[in-house]
Design a protein around this nucleic acid. Structure first.
Length: 370
DNA sequence: GGCTATGATTCCTG
DNA sequence: CAGGAATCATAGCC
């Protein structure tokens, strides 16, 4: 079994002789033909295009997420659409979070594309390498063009399997990203200053009955760039916390009372155009941000023109316990809707509990110290 | 790091 | 199912 120099030389010589033989080309072509025929039978059995459903799913998802597909434009739109779809309804762009999400998505996208490119390059290199090899070999053994093709397709299949893994892990990354960002609780963001201002304005100008109607909630949501359920949450929290510790909110109440008062007096009768008629007590839905109109109808003699209801409201709270309970008509002067809520809210907020906030036994009088 | 503020969730009630 | 109450979990401040 030893290969000596001599034997090698002999082999080379034989090979050379064969290559130079005048019958060689003919023989070669015959051999190729035979191979091709046998090869075809093999091929047909194993090369039906694999339209892998999973790959299609992955591709679709990546496309939908804006990871695959064209650059920025389509990507962000698709991402937004996806977010809206999964958000289950109203999801206005929470600009901060949204941009954060997008930047992370862009990172994934970048990685994905660079990897993909790498694979493609590697695939091409490998293919040409193999082709060269085959070409080289074709000088010494019969290699049919079809065979080369087959080789190429095998290589491509292998590489596309790798690509599929890449796509899969990219999809996973996107999923994780999505779940993290969609879990609002984990990434709580405070509302913007402007949003809380709007909400507070509404709250304190409807202090007698801080239960915005559906329409009002929608309007507020739109104004604040948050969802309706966020508005509901906010009012729920606010009511509870206000009631729990009115003293603490006294200052805030005053601020907003002044604010709305100013806006009202400045706006004059800018109580234009509320979409719903300024109807009245009845079934509600009269929501008017700038005007706080519905407040007036409850106060027969008191209102005057320079005092907005909100001012009165907060004044009620800033003054002592005895001051208001009776003189403001006691009971439901703010008739609007829902006696249920109204009653409980009034009951809890209005009477004796107001004076001594839970702060401490009497000691804290924020208004005097300030 | 502790503390408070705050948005969200959960559980319960009517 | 809306709202109250308790609770959770994070943000933001010191």
């Amino acid at each position: 079994m030893t290969i000596t120099d001599q034997s090698l030389d002999e082999a080379q010589a034989k090979k050379h002789a064969l290559n130079c033989h005048r019958m060689k080309p003919a023989l070669f072509s015959v051999l190729c033909e035979i191979k091709e025929k046998t090869g075809l039978s093999i091929r047909s059995s194993q090369e039906e295009e694999p339209v892998d459903p999973q790959l299609m799913r992955l591709d679709n998802m990546l496309l939908a997420e804006g990871v695959a597909g064209p650059e920025k434009g389509g990507g962000s739109a698709a991402a937004a659409a996806a977010a809206a779809a999964s958000g289950g309804g109203v999801s206005p762009d929470n600009s901060i979070e949204h941009s954060d999400y997008r930047s992370k998505l862009a990172q994934i996208r970048h990685i994905y594309h660079s990897e993909l490119e790498k694979y493609e390059q590697a695939c091409n290199e490998f293919t040409t390498h193999v082709m060269n090899l085959l070409r080289e070999q074709s000088r010494t053994r019969p290699v049919a063009p079809k065979e080369m093709e087959r080789m190429v397709s095998i290589i491509h299949r292998k590489f596309s399997a790798i690509q599929m893994q890449l796509k899969q892990s990219t999809c996973e990354a996107v999923m994780i990203l999505r779940s993290r960002f969609l879990d609002a609780r984990r990434k709580r963001r405070n509302f913007s200053k402007q949003a809380t201002e709007v909400l507070n304005e509404y709250f304190y100008s409807h202090l007698s009955n801080p239960y915005p109607s559906e329409e009002a909630k929608e309007e507020l949501a739109k104004k604040c760039g948050i969802t309706v359920s966020q508005v509901s949450n906010w009012f729920g929290n606010k009511r509870i916390r206000y009631k729990k510790n009115i003293g603490k909110f006294q200052e805030e109440a005053n601020i907003y009372a002044v604010k709305t008062a100013v806006s009202v007096t400045q706006g004059g009768h800018s109580r234009t155009s509320s979409p719903t008629p300024p109807s009245s007590a009845g079934s509600g839905g009269s929501f008017n941000l700038s005007g706080s109109g519905d407040m007036f109808l409850g106060m027969p003699g008191l209102n005057g023109d320079s005092y907005s209801a909100s001012q009165v409201e907060s004044l009620r709270h800033s003054m002592g316990p005895g001051g208001y309970g009776d003189n403001l008509g006691g009971g439901q002067m703010y008739s609007p809707r829902e006696m249920r809520a109204n009653g409980s809210w009034q009951e809890a907020v209005t009477p004796s509990s107001v004076t001594s906030p839970t702060e401490g036994p009497g000691s804290v009088h924020s208004d005097t110290s300030n």
